[in-house]
Amino acid sequence: MLIKVKNLRKEFSVGGTLFQTERETVKAVDGISFDIKSGAALGLVGESGSGKTTVAKTMLRLHEPTSGEFIFDEQSVFSLLPAELRKLRRRMQIVHQNPNASLHPRMTVMAQVSRPLKIQGIGDKSTHEKQVLDMLQRVGLNPEHARRYPHEFSGGQKQRISIARALITNPEFVALDEPTSALDVSVQAQVLQLLRRLQSELNLTYLFVSHDLGVIRYMCSEVAVMYLGNLVEYATKPKLFANPLHPYTQSLLSIVPIPDPKLRHRDRKMLKGEIPSPKNPPKGCRFHTRCPQVMEKCKSIEPKMKQIEEGHQVACHLYE
């Protein structure tokens, strides 16, 4: 296992302002565990507010974790000192959702893609240029793009620049946070295809965060479903899509719009209401307020993750 995450927790403190004087704790990620094999892609899927982006950012210590462990290639990332962490960062990178926010508007492509090399002290100026040009080519951009600024590019090209910057230090692990959510479907297909090709060429390990089950199915070998800071189901891709066990996963898979009008009249497991606020999550199973199969104990006892068969775990009282 290249990646082992154990009981990861991340709480944010909100409030303490003029308008909201009381401080509250939001448990954005509330004790989740998973592993990713070298060269594999784990999909983290969930609705807004489920905590999926926080997982990715906390693993890379862009947020400091509240508790838990992240073992990367046998090193405990959360106990590293800043200098050690910086050294490790070349091996773990992230691509954010919105390239307009993550690219620097006043830096040329050459300057921003070569920046991680400078910070990491890899090579010198003469080698950087060649490395950047090679990387641009790898992600489907031209060498002459290197002198341009982000505003001169389309959304898809900007995301290619972000990918080039993430891969320039030759990382083993890349967290992809909704990398195609802002893109049109034809451009999304180009970028997804690129990410798959890069994964196999460079033997990359991905954590792929997305709300789109179609994208997850195309990109990932394992899938973890999040709801309000918890993992509710965690399985290999074939098992999750063929035999979803958690009522939440079952509902998601039944209502995701399918581009085939012949499937219009299939059975749908509609959910009532919306995802509750993580400031004040329901007691017991956090999904119980919307669950069509809710039982009495779901309202008070939190279900534990349980292995149903090899490669399939679920946290639900229906399977106890």
Binding site: V185, L192, D212, V215, R217, L253, I258, D260
Partner: peptide
């Protein structure tokens, strides 16, 4: 070009 949630796709059409 749409990755589908109801079936595995080996390749997406690229425009």
């Amino acid at each position: 070009a749409i990755p589908r949630a109801d079936r595995d796709m080996n390749d997406l059409a690229i425009i």
